[in-house]
């Protein structure tokens, strides 16, 4: 069977201990926050950190709390906890829809929200064993110098494959980082960079500790995902929307995010801007879908043809907006995503 390389395992019991351990050698440490992404990558020798710092026993990071104006989700909260949380499933439906479609029930029982937000970018030339990568002469992301997705590309084109990030970005989430030198908080969208290798703005000595999501009365959110099967598969396209309307049905606040269309999830504010101040009518939805379409730039490094993945942007944006409008799209959801409800 595939086996992990050797490493030093550190099991801190508190956040301060974890930060101290990380501070000691950030460049050679990886955070084990669930490990369902990291460990397979290590088994394929895509990553071979000398030290693993497990957050399993750091209780502070496993808290999920809500106050009058926000939800606070600790970085180590398991996906399964989010998926089965009753308040979240009504108020942050888009997030719960996204999380409950990540991988499989088993993986969601181990994986954490922080881990999914920091998910390594993916590519069919990269998510392969060491011998396979050797047989193509490696690639830019690991041990090589060519991006085989587009051989003239100056940067790595590996694709952001987190489902949670677009959902949380549409919901206006902020993320907190802790390091030995202190705490900082940024909008989630600022965590990501459009580079398959340097896809996170997080410093190696920082831990993603908390996600803060504002509560907006009457806000509705949804997440639609394209993939071949109803489980296991990473997104080939993720569309997250959050819309708040006034009593007359006029859109007060809107946000859209696309996942799996570039090396980072993208907040498409120009599309959202089209909706604000308007009713959420068929025409507005059509315009939003048209506007989102050119922003998606899928590449040939994952399942399904890139033209199909791009073509589906319009369809998924439309479905997601119709869902937050209140249309019954459950049959479409069932057909496309094979999910219940």
């Amino acid at each position: 069977m595939l086996r992990l390389p050797e490493f030093q395992l550190l099991l801190p019991q508190s956040l301060s201990e974890a930060l101290a351990l990380l501070q000691a050698d950030p460049e050679h440490s990886s955070i084990l926050a669930g490990g369902t992404d990291l460990l397979p990558n290590m088994k394929r020798r895509q990553q071979t950190p000398a030290r693993l710092i497990s957050l399993r026993n750091v209780k502070e990071l496993g808290q999920l709390t809500l106050s009058a104006d926000e939800f606070c989700i600790g970085g180590s909260v398991r996906l399964r906890t989010i998926e089965t949380h009753e308040t979240l499933s009504t108020e942050l439906r888009g997030l719960v829809q996204a999380v409950s479609q990540i991988a499989t029930v088993h993986i969601r029982g181990t994986a954490t929200i922080g881990g999914n937000l920091c998910l390594d970018t993916r590519c069919e030339y990269y998510n392969q064993s060491q011998p396979w990568r050797q047989s193509i002469g490696f690639c830019k992301k690991k041990d090589g110098d060519i991006c085989w997705v587009a051989t003239s590309s100056p940067r790595c084109l590996a694709v952001s494959s987190t489902d949670a990030a677009p959902a949380l970005m549409a919901l206006g989430a902020q993320v907190q980082f802790c390091s030995a030198s202190g705490l900082r908080e940024i909008p989630l969208s600022a965590l990501y960079q459009n580079d398959g290798i340097h896809y996170l703005s997080k410093r190696p000595d920082e831990l993603l500790t908390l996600i803060r999501i504002p509560r907006r009365a009457g806000q509705r959110s949804a997440y639609w995902k394209l993939r071949r099967r109803g489980s296991f598969d990473f997104p080939l396209l993720g569309v997250a929307v959050a819309v708040q309307r006034d009593e007359a049905g006029t859109v007060q606040h809107a946000q859209l995010a696309l996942g799996a269309v570039s090396s980072r999830p993208i907040l498409v504010e120009e599309v959202a801007a089209l909706l604000i101040g308007q009713p959420l009518g068929d025409e507005q939805i059509r315009q939003a879908a048209e506007a989102a379409y050119p922003l998606a730039k899928p590449m040939d490094h994952a399942d399904m043809s890139l033209s199909y993945r791009k073509a589906m942007v319009k369809s998924l944006v439309t479905s997601a907006l119709r869902e937050v409008r209140g249309d019954d799209v459950s049959q479409d959801r069932q057909r496309l995503m094979r999910v219940l409800g």
């Binding site: 395992l9 084990l32 490990g35 369902t36 460990l39 397979p40 497990s54 993986i107 181990t110």
Partner: peptide
């Protein structure tokens, strides 16, 4: 597969199904 892609190694950890191939024994 040992990569979390098939489910064959599922066990229960405190009653919840997890993949034993993706959990370190020490944890």
């Amino acid at each position: 597969c040992e990569l979390g892609e098939c489910g064959a190694c599922a066990v229960l950890l405190d009653g919840e199904p997890v993949l034993s191939c993706l959990v370190l024994a020490m944890e």
